[in-house]
């Protein structure tokens, strides 16, 4: 936010100028925008409450009789509000956002490299899929078992992630974030496996 109000020039306005009530340009950091501390596990009920309250303050519908400049800030602010809410309420998108804000590289992860501990699982899954494709219905139960195992793995991972989230929110240690990033990559890999095991080829 700018140090002075664009409208009346009074110093240090927040979202609205305390002096003239004019809407100011929005903050770009999602957490700052919601006026909550940066966290991996924010209170979602509180987030929703803030989202509704801010919508009531910022939405373009409420500015249709204001100046062009305020209309523009309203549009900008509401776009950021909606973008921020979409990201912050979703655990994966939110974590990626925090990682990025904290300087971690979160570019596209390759899902081709199989984590070593999953090598055997992936091999078996591919075998089962291939057999099904060839018309061997006996492989179906195998596939279902694999899917159940992957789901269990993901649940365990999610529990692990929750613990790490709480850890980082309490202490903000960079090592925790590195661990979170590793868990997230693994989770993405397993999610892909679940998808793969769920799209069972039709009977030939």
């Amino acid at each position: 936010m700018s140090p002075t109000c664009w409208n009346c020039g009074k110093p240090a306005p927040s979202r609205f100028c305390a002096e003239c009530r004019a809407l100011q340009p929005p903050a770009s950091d999602y957490f700052a925008f919601f006026e909550i501390p940066r966290a991996l596990a924010p209170d979602l009920k509180d987030l929703e409450k803030r989202f509704y309250a801010l919508s009531r303050q910022l939405h373009p519908d409420l500015f249709s009789r204001k100046s062009a400049r305020e209309q523009e800030y309203s549009l900008e602010s509401t776009a950021i509000l909606n973008d921020a809410y979409r990201v912050l309420k979703d655990p994966v998108a939110r974590t990626l956002y925090v990682l990025k804000q904290e300087g971690f590289d979160v570019g596209e992860q390759s899902t081709k490299d199989v984590p070593p501990e999953l090598l055997e699982e992936v091999f078996e899954l591919n075998m089962a899929l291939e057999e099904l494709r060839m018309g061997d219905e006996d492989a179906r139960p195998q596939l279902e078992a694999a899917r159940a195992r992957f789901r269990k793995m993901r649940d365990e991972l999610d529990a692990d992630l929750q613990r790490q989230f709480a850890g980082w929110d309490a202490s903000q240690r960079a090592e925790t974030l590195a661990a979170v990033r590793a868990l997230l990559n693994r989770r993405k890999y397993i999610t892909n496996l679940i998808d793969k095991a769920s799209h069972v080829p039709d009977r030939v």
Binding site: P60, L75, T78, A79, I80, N82, D83, Y85, R86
Partner: peptide
């Protein structure tokens, strides 16, 4: 299904 206004 993104709430509008939305931006990227």
């Amino acid at each position: 299904n993104s709430t509008i206004p939305a931006s990227a």
